[in-house]
Design a protein around this nucleic acid. Structure first.
Lengths: 208, 208
DNA sequence: ATCCTACAGTAACATTTATCACAGAAGGTT
DNA sequence: AACCTTCTGTGATAAATGTTACTGTAGGAT
C-alpha cells in the first residue's frame, strides 16, 4: 500500500506501527478546515499522513501570523506538548491541502514514550525541529525587513507545495506576514522588476 | 541544606535526586560568562540551581536578541533537545548573575527519561514552557510596536530580578531588542513623562 | 583639578512601513 | 451586455523606526 504508515514514518518500529494502527483513528479533513483554535483544549496528538497544514499564531487583534507548515511524516509539536499536560492550545492549525491525520489519544502518547524507543526519538526530534523552525521565524521578524521576509515566505511556500506557483492573493499573504496588502503589492512589484517573480491574478510565479 | 536539589526541584523523586547527585557535576560561573555560543556543539544539559542566565538568538550581523531568562529550578530546553541529538546550539547563553549549574551528561539525560517518571515530566514541562515563551516573543515582535516591547522587556527584567530597578544602559537594552540606543532613550523619556519610570544613570526605576 | 570614557539627551533627517483614497482589471453571475 | 465582487496597482500622506551628528554630564583614573 502506497500510503502505509511505514512509508510515511520510516523510523517507526514495526511494533510501533502496529500499535498505532490499533489505537489511532485515521481522519480526513478538507482544505480550509480549522483543526485547532487558539485557546482550545487539546485531546489528541495528530500525525500527518497526507496533505498540508499551516500553523498560525493569533494576535489579540485577530491577526494570523504564519509559524510553519506541517506535512506528511510530521506531527504537531504543540499538540504533543499540550497533550502531555492537557493544556490549552497556543496556536491555530488550518488545513491548506486535504489531509489525513492519525489521531493519537493522550494516554497512548505518554505510554509509548516508555515502551517504544522509535516513538520517543520521534517525539524528541519533533520538538527539536519545531523549536528550530520557530527560532527561524524569530530571526526573520527580529532581524529582517519586510522584503526579505516576503521572499522567505514565498520560498517556503514553494518548498512546501513543491511547485513554483503561489496561488494566494496579496491580502492573504499580507495577513500571514502581519502587514498590509498595499505593502505586499508594492514589494511584489519591485520583485517583478528585479526579475524574481511574474505576477498574475491570484498567482505569483517564482522565477529563481 | 538551603540549596539542596530537592528544594530547587521539588518535583524530582528522591531516587532521581540521588542519581543526579551521583552523575552530575556542579559548576559555578561568574556573571558575564558565555555558557554556550551559537554554533557550538552541546555535550551537557544544564540544570540551574542558582543565579540567572539570559538566552539570546544571534543575527548574522551579530545582534543579540533576548529570548528568555533561565532561573533556578529551570533547565535549558535547547540544550536538552540538542543534547538528545548532539546537535549544534542555535542560541547563546550568557550568565547575568553568578550561577551554579548541575551539568548532566548526554547519556544520562536519555537514560533517565525511561527510568524516572519525574525526570520525564520535567523534560516535557521544560519543552512546553520554553516553547510557550518563544511564542510569546513571536507575539511581541510580530504584533507589537517598540514602545510596548520595551515595556514588556522592563517588566520581564524586574520579574526576573525581583526588584524594580533595571541596572542596564540604554545601549544594552537596545541590543537585546534589536533596535538603536536613540530609540530606547526616546521611548524611555516618553515613559518617564507618562510617569511609568524614573531615569537615572545606568538605572531605570519602574514606578508602576 | 584634569582628563578620559561611557552614558544619556535631542534635533534633524532618512527610511521603512502603515493607512487612506481611489482607479482599473479580471472573472463570475444574471 | 450589464453588473458585481474581488483583486491589484499606485499616489499621497502619516507614523514609526533608524541614522547621523552633536552636546552635555557623571564618574573613574591619573
Amino acid at each position: 500500500m502506497q500510503h502505509s504508515l511505514k512509508n510515511i514514518f520510516p523510523n517507526f518500529s514495526n511494533e510501533l506501527i502496529e500499535t498505532i494502527e490499533k489505537n489511532g483513528t485515521l481522519q480526513d479533513f478538507k482544505t480550509g478546515t480549522i483543526l485547532m483554535r487558539t485557546g482550545q483544549y487539546i485531546k489528541n496528538t495528530a500525525l500527518i499522513t497526507k496533505g498540508k497544514i499551516k500553523i498560525y499564531r493569533q494576535g489579540e487583534d485577530g491577526g494570523e501570523f504564519l509559524l510553519y507548515y506541517l506535512q506528511p511524516g510530521q506531527a504537531c509539536a504543540i499538540s504533543m506538548i499540550c497533550t502531555a499536560k492537557s493544556e490549552k492550545s497556543q496556536i491555530m492549525a488550518k488545513v491548506v491541502e486535504d489531509v489525513s491525520v492519525m489521531m493519537i489519544p493522550l494516554q497512548s502518547m505518554d505510554k509509548w514514550m516508555m515502551e517504544h524507543r522509535s516513538w520517543y526519538e520521534f517525539v524528541i526530534e519533533t520538538y527539536r525541529s519545531r523549536f528550530e523552525e520557530v527560532l527561524e521565524v524569530v530571526d526573520n521578524i527580529a532581524f529582517r525587513s519586510m522584503d526579505e521576509r516576503l521572499e522567505f515566505y514565498l520560498k517556503r511556500h514553494s518548498d512546501a507545495c513543491g511547485c513554483s506557483e503561489v496561488n494566494l492573493s496579496h491580502q492573504e499573504i499580507a495577513s500571514e506576514l502581519n502587514t498590509s496588502r498595499e505593502v505586499v503589492s508594492r514589494l511584489l512589484k519591485k520583485m517583478e522588476q528585479r526579475g524574481l517573480v511574474k505576477l498574475n491574478r491570484n498567482q505569483i510565479e517564482l522565477l529563481k
